[in-house]
Computed example of a mutant assay.
Amino acid sequence: MPRFFIDMPLAAGQLVDLPPEVAHHIHVIRLGPGDPLTLFDGNGGQYEAVLADVGKKRATAEVRTFDPREAELPYPVTLAQALPEGTKMDWIVEKAVELGVAAVQPLAARRCVVRLSAERAEKKLAHWRAIVVAASEQSGRNRLATVAEPAELRDWLAAGSAAPRLLLTPRATQTLADWARATPPQPVTVMVGPEGGFTDEEEQEALRQGAIGVAMGPRILRTETAGLAVLAALGMAWGA
């Protein structure tokens, strides 16, 4: 059944004018009055609805029953991802949402090739948040992951964190698997470096600020693979 995010509070019994982009998609996939669909507003749970009226550029749905189902991880995971080259961040955000990430924090590290101006950062942020919506619609999640504004690594580290920060580094003496087995499920932040990794100085500063170094094993993962592998591994170790 088609699922759509609606950026407004929903309630059973409402007659809702669907956003233009949703109405366009409904027209493209040739849905008509009486066809069922699922709507969610990002506040948890979802609503079963039926199309009441469909035009070329508009559509109206009748919101019916509320379903409280959730698809969130029982422990919020934040992915602190150093900005990679090209469109890799798009793929990382999409797949991280599918794997249950609660938040994404883009970071500017020394070896990052990408340097975003304020204008480009604003456009990228809107683009990544749109990817979150699309990935949530596809994956059955009813709450939207947040994407924070890009931050300089040193500033982000200095701000501190209530949750443990896991620094992915091949120089760590413990593996993620060992750490997860010895640690109860809890909120956690995963730090992933850019192509080439964090510099030695950045890793040392992260460790001084309380980060926990962990390795993924004997193989070196690409920046677009590492964070996703951690999300999957934590899901296996702690339960998804």
Rank of each mutant, 00 (worst) to 15 (best):
M1F: 00
M1Y: 00
M1L: 13
P2W: 11
F4H: 13
D7S: 11
M8V: 03
P9C: 06
G13F: 03
P19R: 04
V22G: 00
H24T: 13
H25M: 03
V28M: 14
R30M: 13
R30Y: 14
L31R: 13
G32V: 02
D35I: 05
D35M: 01
P36R: 12
P36G: 09
F40C: 06
D41F: 07
G45Y: 09
Y47M: 00
V50I: 14
A52Q: 15
V54W: 14
G55C: 09
K56G: 12
V63P: 09
R64S: 12
F66D: 11
D67C: 15
D67T: 14
P68R: 11
P68H: 10
P68Y: 13
R69T: 15
E70M: 10
P74T: 09
P74N: 08
V77M: 11
V77A: 07
Q81N: 05
A82R: 08
L83G: 06
P84T: 04
G86P: 03
T87M: 04
M89D: 04
M89I: 13
D90C: 02
K95E: 08
K95G: 04
E98A: 03
V104K: 03
Q105M: 07
R110P: 00
R111S: 02
C112K: 11
V113S: 07
S117H: 14
R120Y: 01
R120P: 01
E122N: 10
E122L: 14
K123G: 04
H127C: 06
A130D: 13
I131C: 10
E137A: 02
E137T: 07
N142G: 10
R143M: 11
L144T: 04
A145T: 09
A151K: 15
L153D: 02
R154F: 12
W156G: 00
W156D: 04
L157W: 12
S161R: 14
A163N: 08
L166E: 09
T173S: 13
T173H: 07
Q174N: 02
W179D: 01
P185H: 08
P185E: 09
P185L: 03
Q186M: 06
V188H: 07
T189S: 05
M191L: 15
G193M: 06
G196M: 11
F198R: 01
F198E: 05
E201M: 01
E203W: 04
E205I: 12
A206L: 03
A206R: 02
A206K: 02
Q209T: 01
Q209A: 15
G213T: 06
G217Y: 10
L221F: 15
T223G: 06
A226K: 07
A226P: 10
A232F: 04
A232S: 14
A232K: 08
A232R: 03
L234Q: 08
A237F: 09
G239A: 07
A240L: 05
